[in-house]
Structure formats: structure tokens, C-alpha cells
């Protein structure tokens, strides 16, 4: 399946916000994304992050009992975005939030997946990894019934070496969108058989990959970035809501 060469997106006038929040606490990571979604219609934001401790995140509609065999001793959170569970261990996580009328997100949800996955495929190509949309081919990373995002794929998922390597999910709320992405650097015991970048680029670190994604983002979307910190209001929101995202009330809501 071919990838769109460029998204045909006009240059945005205002710089995007760029946030780098390494080693975030799992509940806080999710709560900060919620804050970003709430303010997304003012300025588009791209956030890169990692997790400390590592955690298993459930999709919004998943039944936690179905993930119980995978949960083990892991820290559990639930995302407000959909899809399957992800073990956030050796990976680069990103979130993108903007209005649903933004050039990145307008139109069918599947188009926004094509734009983002097309962009990532070009980043990976620079690293010598040939990634492509799965299309109708079957993947080696498919595992029935684990509930794990990386063990299930759709035609729009990004794969290399016949395996899924990027997990994606979205939440759309009140005319705003937050897109979650998870790029596997190294393997996790919970995500057996999935594609990792380090299998091809041994020394790749999250910050270096984030820098490459940022560069391609600018080229593809014709935008610029302003490196910022989360606002005081966003930090306050994240502090206040962090516990909710790892609470039994939310994690075991279904």
C-alpha cells in the first residue's frame, strides 16, 4: 500500500507548541494529555514523553478483566483514547492535540491516521527502516485475544518486517482531537513479536527519535515549533487528575 507523499497541508501561521516531558509518572502522563486536549483549539501541540515507572495502559472501552493475565505486577492506567492495551516500556510516546478543523485532523479519522503514519514512515526511512501501511497483508505480530494494541492491526497500521511497530489511538471531544502514538524502540515481554526500531538502529534513544519526528513534522506540515513547558494551568490540571487515571474507579470502569 502506498503512502501519501505529503499531506497537502497548507502552512500554519502560528508555531506549534512542542513539549518534552521525560520519565513522567503514568497517571500524570494521561492527565497532562487530558489538559492538552482541553486547550487544543487554541494552539496545536505536539508532546513527546516516556514513562517512569513503566506502565500498562488500557484503551478507554477495554474490559480490564480481559487484560488481567497481562497486568501482572505492572502499574495500570486507562487512557481516554480507544484501542487496545499498550505496555509503555522501551518506547517513545507522543500526543498531538489540535482542533478537528486543523489540517492534520480534518475529514475522516482514517485520513488523519494516513497523514500521521505517512509522516512517521518517512522518519523511519531516514533511519533505514522501511515501514509501510499494513494494507490487506497479514502481520506476524498478530496474537489472538491478548487485548494488546500491538497484537491486533488494521489496514492503516504502520508495520515493518511484517510486524506492527506503532500503536495509535484518538479521542475526539467537543471539536478537538488528541492523537496518541506509541513507537516501539525495544521489546517488551507483554508485546511479543512486534516490530522495534532498535532491532535496526541499535543505539536509538527516545530524545533523538523525537528530534527526528519533530523535523519531519515541520517539513510535512510546513509548520514551526516553539519549545515550551506545559502551562501552569495544565500542570495544575495534571497534578489534580493524575490519581484518577490510575484509580480502580477508572481503570476498572469496565
Amino acid at each position: 500500500m502506498s503512502l501519501p507523499e505529503d499531506a497537502g497541508v497548507p502552512a500554519a501561521r502560528e508555531p506549534w507548541r512542542l513539549l518534552l516531558t521525560w520519565d513522567g509518572e503514568p497517571g500524570w502522563n494521561m492527565a497532562l494529555d487530558e489538559a492538552l486536549l482541553q486547550s487544543a483549539d487554541r494552539r496545536a501541540v505536539l508532546r513527546f514523553y516516556t514513562w517512569k515507572p513503566h506502565a500498562l495502559s488500557l484503551g478507554y472501552f477495554q474490559r480490564w478483566r480481559e487484560l488481567a493475565p497481562q497486568a501482572g505486577a505492572n502499574v495500570l492506567v486507562r487512557r481516554f483514547s480507544g484501542g487496545g492495551a499498550i505496555h509503555h516500556s522501551d518506547e517513545l510516546t507522543f500526543s498531538v492535540a489540535a482542533a478537528d478543523t486543523h489540517a492534520l485532523f480534518h475529514g475522516e479519522v482514517s485520513r488523519s491516521y494516513e497523514r500521521i503514519h505517512g509522516l512517521l514512515a518517512r522518519v523511519f526511512a531516514e533511519l533505514g527502516v522501511r515501514a509501510a501501511l499494513r494494507g490487506e497483508q497479514a502481520l506476524l505480530s498478530e496474537r489472538a485475544g491478548t487485548g494488546m494494541c500491538f497484537h491486533h492491526s488494521t489496514p492503516l497500521d504502520l508495520a515493518w518486517d511484517g510486524k506492527k511497530g506503532v500503536g495509535s489511538a484518538q479521542r475526539r471531544r467537543g471539536g478537538r482531537v488528541l492523537h496518541h502514538g506509541s513507537i516501539k524502540l525495544g521489546a517488551s515481554a507483554l508485546e511479543e513479536g512486534v516490530a522495534t526500531l532498535r532491532a535496526r538502529v541499535p543505539a536509538l534513544e527516545p530524545a533523538a527519535l523525537a528530534e527526528r519526528v519533530r523535523g519531519e513534522w515541520e517539513r510535512t506540515l510546513g509548520c514551526t515549533f516553539a519549545r515550551e513547558e506545559p502551562s501552569a494551568l495544565e500542570l495544575e490540571h495534571a497534578r489534580a487528575r493524575a490519581a484518577f487515571y490510575r484509580s480502580d474507579e477508572f481503570v476498572r470502569r469496565r
Binding site: Y60, F61, F80, S81, G82, G83, V109, S110, Y113, T154, L156, S168, A169, Q170, R171, R172, R173, G174, V177
Partner: peptide, 17 residues
């Protein structure tokens, strides 16, 4: 304007207002 439900497709969760 209040959210009364949610709908999920394989690609996104959307609020119902």
C-alpha cells in the same frame, strides 16, 4: 453541551454531547 455518552470506532473515541 454536556457529554451524555461515547462512541468508539476502531480508530477513535468520540464524545456525544
Amino acid at each position: 453541551g454536556e457529554t451524555f455518552g461515547e462512541i468508539e470506532s476502531v480508530k477513535a473515541v468520540s464524545d456525544l454531547n
